[in-house]
Design a binder for these strands. Structure first.
Length: 478
RNA sequence: GUCCCCAUCGUCUAGCCAGGUCCAGGACACCGGCCUUUCACGCCGGCAACACCGGUUCAAAUCCGGUUGGGGACGCCA
């Protein structure tokens, strides 16, 4: 098979948001396909009307778009393709590969119960298999699975797999309400869309022989399979809602960039020697199913955070400024002053692990009012620094140029004259200007605020200290 | 219960297929130190694993068997 003809698909069911497990499956399909120059298809498996929703579909598509996992065809919706499935089921019926079954759900439950009691695998006992029954209200269609023999395939991740057909039972392919079941719809669609490689979660390994048997009954070529190990929660159990923020959109809203998320996901299960960081181009170039591990893994949120911080540090200011905009808005800090935002980004990016943090960090220069942190207020805004601050303010008003270079010079002279260390002045000043004890460098802070705001905030801090002392006489120093 | 699969630091993993170069390497986290105007960044150092038991072999993280632990499948869900 020419690699150019490779076709893969990502088939989420819209029963909830896209979580990181699904995102990783999508990513691996996407990387594999982009590397080979093939076609990647998005297909929405919404045959379960009760559990599917438009919101979920929307969330999945938004997630894929945000991640940049572009698809070449689709999205196809299974709910609109019943004609395809019906045709396939009829073909199976006509060929004698499938049959009508009149057993009721209650009968089946009893059968399963009995099998369990005898220590056997619960499966359908084949009551209607050779009865030659026709369709009837409440009846279903089942596939005739070979009673003996084996079904095997070579998994691109896990190696050769072989299953005894005796372990399988005659699966239902058409429900009593006429709709196709999952296995039938998947196979019919994969045939229809000419899928060549099925890359999916580990939980489908045991489904694979059933699906292969449908292909065989149809005499259709069987695709190649690659089963990815599961992603587990921190408690090593299957990922679920109780594991907290696992939705792709939640990561977006927490201020993560798509690239580090993808990078982290890629390294969960796949590796390329000791390399940890990959550009998207490298990921596409270096990805290989051969290097996907077999063991399930736990998603390492700390590592993602570190990666995110690293990508923020490395990203161009302009790009980050753009990315930051929605986060400023949600914090009520939106500013038309693009230059200030960009300047803030440039000094904040080295100390922001997420865009949320960055937006928070930009507060001091985008908000008119600042509030003093209790801790910083108590510790640094004390009467002892009033003279210092007032003196400093006089000089700040007087210098001709208000920029970092001039400020550093002014401070050097000032500190020498007062015979104090910079830290002695920087911390109270930092609290006065930003409200916090931690911020970018004090000269950067002053530079970005500009003379007017700096002078004003120092003035306010002095007033604040005086009021404080007046209201509650200072206790003896500890 | 039945069947299938998996197993290296707390976590992600390299090494395993082609046994010796591994008293096991990297990353995150954590703990020290340096730098320093705070917070970060950066740099240096540290802690920490071959699940267990047998076998094969001159030699096993690597091959084989079993035990234990974990996961998955067994739906008219996907």
């Amino acid at each position: 098979m020419s690699e150019k003809n490779i076709v893969t698909r990502f088939p989420p069911s819209p029963t909830g948001y896209l979580h990181i497990g699904g995102a990783r499956t999508a990513l691996f399909n996407w990387l594999f396909t982009r590397q080979k120059g093939g076609k990647f298809i998005l297909r929405i498996e919404d045959t379960d009307e009760n559990r599917s929703s438009d919101e979920a579909t929307r969330a999945i598509i938004d997630s894929m778009e945000w991640l940049g996992l572009t698809w070449d065809e689709g999205p196809y919706f299974q709910s609109r393709r019943y004609h395809i499935y019906n045709k396939v089921i009829d073909r199976l019926l006509t060929a004698g590969e499938a049959y009508h079954c009149h057993c009721s759900p209650e009968d089946l439950e009893k059968q399963r119960q009995r099998a369990r009691e005898r220590g056997l695998k619960p499966k359908y006992d084949g009551t209607c298999r050779d009865l030659g029954l026709g369709p009837a209200p409440g009846s279903v269609v089942r596939l005739k699975i070979p009673l003996t023999g084996i079904t095997s395939f070579n998994d691109l991740v896990k190696g050769p797999r072989t299953f005894n057909n005796e372990e399988l039972d005659d699966l239902i392919i058409r429900r009593s309400n006429g709709s196709p079941t999952y296995h039938l719809a998947v196979v019919a669609d994969d045939i229809n869309l000419r899928i060549t490689h099925v890359i999916r979660g580990d939980d489908h390994v045991n489904n694979t022989p059933r699906q292969i048997l449908i292909y065989k009954a149809l005499r259709e070529p069987i695709p190649k399979y690659a089963h990815l190990p599961m992603i587990l929660g921190p408690d090593k159990t299957r990922l679920s809602k109780r594991h907290g923020a696992m939705s792709v959109l939640a990561y977006r809203d927490m201020g993560y960039l798509p690239h580090p998320l993808l990078n982290a996901l890629a390294r969960l299960g796949w590796s390329y020697g000791d390399q940890e960081k990959f550009s998207m181009a490298e990921l596409i170039e270096k990805f290989s199913l051969n290097n996907v591990g077999k063991a399930a893994g736990v998603f390492n949120a700390d590592k993602l955070l570190d990666l995110n911080a690293w990508y923020i540090r490395e990203s161009p200011d302009e790009f980050l400024t753009e990315q930051l905009t929605p986060f400023l808005e949600t914090q009520g800090l939106s500013s038309p002053d693009h230059k200030t935002v960009r300047k803030a980004v440039s000094i904040l990016k080295v100390r922001s692990k997420t865009l949320v943090e960055m937006a928070e960090g930009a507060r001091f220069c985008l908000s008119q009012e600042i509030r003093y942190d209790k801790k910083g207020d108590d510790k640094f805004l004390k009467s002892g620094v009033v003279d210092l601050l007032e003196d400093l303010n006089r000089r700040l008003k007087a210098i001709p140029e208000f920029n970092q270079e001039a400020l550093e010079k002014l401070f050097m002279d000032f500190l020498e004259e007062k015979e104090i260390k910079l830290r002695k002045l920087a911390q109270p000043l930092r609290v006065a200007l930003t409200g916090k004890t931690a911020s970018p460098g004090i000269f950067e802070v002053m530079d970005i605020l500009g003379r007017e705001k700096v002078v004003e905030r120092i003035r306010k801090a002095v007033i604040h200290i005086r009021n404080k002392e007046k209201g509650a006489p200072e206790r003896s120093e500890a």
